[in-house]
């Protein structure tokens, strides 16, 4: 498809989400959601007229549909070409002592909110035969001190895998799995990193790979530094 698209990006206030917003909002109409707006995103919105922010708290998934649909109506978006469900949270720690609140929040934000969003966005995406892109994680195969995070991302992969078959010829579904990335997620999660952080991919590199994957027909792709150095970002033409 040529010409500007309507694109929704969740969790676009920092990290990979913000880097992706920066790439895509140069050519497309982008709606960003997040818990609260960040100064970096605010500065970007001032410069780009087709970029918009909606506060959406994914720790309360039940409220998402109502907030989002009424905003889309106000914005006069009755169709969406691409949705990138990128928002996520996580807590590092021994699972024996993980609190109920942390478990419930991880499952709500990373898994249930994305299920609710998929349910809500289906009619908008169907109109354009659009594409739904989930951002998973390489932790989906299991991580001992990141257990509920790993569980939530594994659930997201299983959900995407089933949905891809169900929505065949209606809406394309894919899930992309970034590896460790230089974002503030690890510090927020309570993890102190040393030299190893230098091996992590930058959010810009991951956003580059995400954009290219959105333009291709791969269902699931890993996106780590190794993939980037191997030239993953050079494949595909990006999102026209």
């Amino acid at each position: 498809m040529a010409g500007p698209r309507n694109i929704l990006i969740t969790g676009g206030t920092s990290g990979i989400g913000l880097a992706l917003v920066d790439r895509l909002s140069k050519r497309h109409r982008v709606l960003v959601t997040g818990r609260k707006i960040s100064p970096a995103l605010e500065a970007m919105i001032v410069q780009r007229p087709d970029l918009d922010f909606l506060a959406l708290d994914q720790s309360q998934p039940e409220k998402i549909t109502k907030t989002l649909t009424s905003y889309l109506e106000k914005k006069k978006w009755d169709q969406i070409h691409n949705a990138v469900l990128n928002a996520g949270t996580g807590f590092v720690g021994d699972p024996v002592h993980e609190t109920s609140d942390k478990i419930a929040q991880t499952i709500a934000v990373n898994l249930m909110a994305n299920i609710e969003l998929s349910h809500c966005l289906f009619p908008y995406l169907q109109k354009t035969k659009g594409k739904l892109t989930f951002v998973g994680s390489t932790a989906r195969k299991g991580a001992k001190n990141f257990s509920s995070y790993a569980a939530s991302k594994a659930g997201l992969h299983g959900f995407a895998r089933a949905l891809k078959e169900e929505w065949r010829n209606k809406v394309a579904v894919q899930i992309l799995h970034p590896g460790p990335t230089k974002t503030d997620m690890h510090e927020k999660a309570g993890l102190k990193l040393g030299m190893i952080r230098h091996l992590f991919a930058s959010p810009e590199a991951v956003a580059h790979m995400i954009e290219n994957s959105m333009g291709r027909n791969r269902f699931s792709t890993k996106m780590t530094s190794f993939q980037y150095w191997g030239g993953n970002h050079l494949l595909g033409r990006g999102l026209r």
Binding site: G142, K144, S147, G158, F159, E165
Partner: peptide, 22 residues
């Protein structure tokens, strides 16, 4: 994979990987 029970299969994948992780 389990098309026709997308959320059920999501829940079963999540619990399997939780079990593996802990």
């Amino acid at each position: 994979g389990y098309p026709g029970a997308a959320v059920y299969s999501a829940s079963k994948d999540a619990i399997a990987v939780y079990a593996k992780s802990i």
